[in-house]
């Protein structure tokens, strides 16, 4: 048996299952909860909520801003076009492009962080297609004491499966 899990239609029962697994000595990192929607009103929905994504986006935006400022200036001075008496590298007009590239950098960094942390960095293969019918899967992939885990997951309103 490589994994054991329970399927619950009620998030309250899923929360009890998560609590039972913790009480059975399973580390939080080893508990897998899978659902077809986010459960932000439940404690189990907030596991793994901490992320540096906003800081990464901010840093990328700042990097994009600085890089665009210098790239634009370098580009404009490499071939100094004189238009309507404006300076070769006028800040007023350059600000528009700098702003767009700042935002684009922040957006790109956000998506890359999402891909890395939620897809590439996502470990585990535990899944059951019944999740798409609204069931919440609570399980463990490293099954040490299978009997103990099974009794932790066996709650009224749920079904226990193993693979």
């Amino acid at each position: 048996m490589s994994a054991i899990y329970g399927l619950y239609s009620d998030p309250n029962v899923a929360q009890v299952a998560v609590n039972n697994l913790r009480a059975a000595g399973v580390p939080d990192a080893d508990i897998t909860v899978i659902s077809s929607e986010p459960f932000e009103h439940f404690e189990f929905g907030h596991r793994d909520a901490r992320t540096a994504m906003p800081w990464i986006a901010t840093a990328a935006g700042a990097a994009g801003m600085v890089a665009t400022y210098y790239l634009l200036g370098l580009s404009q001075h490499a071939w100094p076009l004189v238009t309507s008496g404006m300076p070769v590298a006028p800040l007023w007009t350059n600000l528009i492009i700098i702003f767009e590239m700042t935002m684009l950098s922040a957006i790109a960094a956000t998506v890359i962080t999402l891909i890395v942390t939620a897809f590439i960095g996502e470990r585990g293969t535990l899944y059951d297609p019944e999740v798409s019918d609204g069931y919440i899967l609570v399980g463990v992939e490293k099954t040490g004491d299978a009997g103990k885990l099974e009794s932790a997951l066996k709650i009224d309103g749920g079904r226990v499966k193993s693979i």
């Binding site: 897998t32 909860v33 899978i34 659902s35 077809s36 929607e37 986010p38 459960f39 932000e40 189990f44 929905g45 907030h46 596991r47 793994d48 909520a49 992320t51 994504m53 906003p54 956000t110 998506v111 962080t113 999402l114 942390t117 939620a118 897809f119 996502e122 585990g124 535990l126 899944y127 999740v131």
Partner: peptide, 15 residues
Amino acid sequence: GWRGTTRQWNRLESA
């Protein structure tokens, strides 16, 4: 390969 783990949901909502 989306499964719907709490980690994936949290990252998606943050993004």
